[in-house]
């Protein structure tokens, strides 16, 4: 089971405030519907903007994650074949799975 990190713990943003629960200290008046509408519209605009930003951020994150995954797979493979414990066996079969490209240098004598 993964250990709980910062992101798994509920924080300040998760507390329902007077603001988010829509309560007021002042008693409700009829004419305040317009004010409520105005306030909610504001909040809606703000949250929509934030959601759009997050979606965009999520997109970049997913893209990067896919890239990293790809890179890691490639590296893990070469790391595994580099290990001396495997190398001894693989070298015995020159046409085995590890065909590497060596830097070559013609030495004339």
């Amino acid at each position: 089971m993964p250990i709980k990190g910062v992101t798994d713990v509920s924080g300040l943003r998760d507390i329902r405030s007077l603001h988010t629960s829509g309560r007021r200290s002042m008693p409700k008046v009829q004419s305040s519907a317009y004010l409520d509408l105005y306030m909610l519209q504001k909040a809606k605009d703000r949250l929509e903007k934030e959601a759009a930003l997050l979606a965009k951020r999520n997109q970049t994150i997913q893209k990067r994650l896919a890239e990293i995954q790809n890179q890691m797979e490639g590296l893990e493979q070469s790391a595994r074949s580099e290990r001396p414990s495997n190398g001894g066996k693989k070298a015995a079969e020159p046409n085995g799975p590890t065909k590497r490209k060596w830097k070559k240098f013609a030495l004339k004598y």
Binding site: K103, F105, L107
Partner: peptide
């Protein structure tokens, strides 16, 4: 990364 640092030689006789 081991091998990247090693260059192998191919000896060939000069004329």
């Amino acid at each position: 990364m081991i091998e990247e640092l090693t260059t192998i030689l191919e000896p060939t006789p000069l004329p």
